[in-house]
């Protein structure tokens, strides 16, 4: 009887050990991802990608959604600091308002990685961005090309539909875009914000402007979900695909669908997968407070450039222009195929 009990106890202990050991071996710790909102596809995609890639290098990820509220994110940061995680990944609702929390976390010995929304007002341990101003540059290059193809020269009228005017993300894209377009005085740019990034607001702007300015050649919207509403308004105004050119940014699935249907010509992608993978590649070094060497790194096939900036190490990934020629490429996050190849830590 004693032998039986001992055997059962041994088997139970072995089972528990077997069940627990992979988790214990796999997890190097918990990283909190502070996501600004779950109301757009880029952000929900970022949770999936960061969870997957951080899992590849041995970290568990817990995501906290701030519902686009700065005060909520500040509170979440304060709570997470008290939990002493291995690191925090922050995609800030407001670039500057989170500065005290970033500083508090680092003072508590918790490394802070910045995802997508660059914070330059204070030091952080790694920033992974596409460069929102650069997205504006890429959009400008593509729009110049499209206008030249349509009008024989870079001239015409462009309606730019921004996101919420309180969001620095859209203001940066506008800055980059308008900076590059300054060289072309024959291009008239009408800029209007869609309050709260709400699609029907964008639809109303397009509907009004198409009537007031029937000679609009191209509509540039700052997010793909706004492009859908823009197309709905164009369709309601009797336009056919290609009548009014359409360019969008962020690379969401709906934008790619619009390219396939001919309504949209270019989607400027934010390289979501590469941005998330870059954080995972350097996670061990960041957590262990090791130096990150500047240079060029292959991040999921994209060339990322790591530099030391005033705000700390910064890796920038190039945004890509998606057209009908490459729209089905699985490397674009809008095709919703998270790369299966595991990300490896940088040695």
């Amino acid at each position: 009887m004693k032998r039986l009990i001992a055997s059962l106890a041994g088997a139970a202990a072995l089972t528990v050990a077997t069940l627990l050991s992979p988790a214990l071996a796999a997890s190097k710790g918990t990283i909190y991802y502070m996501v600004p909102t779950l109301l757009d596809e880029f952000q929900t995609g970022s949770v999936t990608a960061i969870t997957k890639f951080m899992g590849d290098v041995g970290y568990d990820v817990k995501a906290l959604n701030a519902d686009n509220k700065t005060d909520v994110q500040q509170g979440q940061m304060n709570d997470v600091i008290a939990l002493k995680p291995s690191a925090i990944i922050l995609a800030a609702v407001d670039f500057d308002a989170l500065k005290p929390q970033v500083e508090a976390a680092r003072a508590a010995g918790i490394p802070v990685m910045i995802f997508d929304r660059q914070i330059t007002a204070t030091k952080s341990d790694l920033t992974s961005v596409a460069g929102t101003v650069e997205i504006g540059y890429v959009a400008a290059d593509q729009i110049q090309r499209l206008l030249k193809e349509k009008n024989g020269a870079v001239k015409g009228k462009v309606l730019q539909v921004l996101g919420d005017p309180g969001d620095p993300y859209t203001l940066d894209i506008q800055k980059g875009f308008e900076e590059k377009m300054k060289a072309f005085p024959d291009v008239t740019i009408i800029s209007k914000p869609a309050m709260q990034w709400e699609a029907s607001n964008a639809g109303s702007i397009v509907a009004d402007q198409i009537l007031a300015n029937p000679d609009i050649d191209l509509v540039f919207v700052h997010a793909a979900h706004l492009a859908v509403a823009a197309v709905a308004s164009l369709e309601a105004a009797g336009k056919k695909p290609g009548d009014v050119l359409l360019v969008s940014s962020n690379g969401a699935p709906v934008g790619l669908d619009l390219i396939r249907k001919g309504w949209e010509q270019v989607e400027v992608e934010q390289p979501l997968f590469a941005q998330a993978a870059a954080l995972a590649m350097f996670a061990d070094k960041v957590v262990n407070k090791q130096e990150l060497k500047p240079g060029r790194y292959d991040v999921l096939g994209l060339e990322g450039t790591l530099t030391n900036e005033a705000w700390g190490p910064n890796i920038k990934l190039p945004g890509a222009a998606i057209t009908k020629d490459n729209v089905d490429d699985p490397k674009f996050w809008g095709n919703m195929k998270t790369p299966e190849t595991p990300v490896k830590s940088v040695e």
Partner: peptide
């Protein structure tokens, strides 16, 4: 009506 106008729905549709 809003879904018909925008040809679908986004998670933040109608905010405000």
């Amino acid at each position: 009506l809003l879904a018909i106008r925008t040809s679908g729905a986004t998670a933040n549709l109608g905010v405000g």
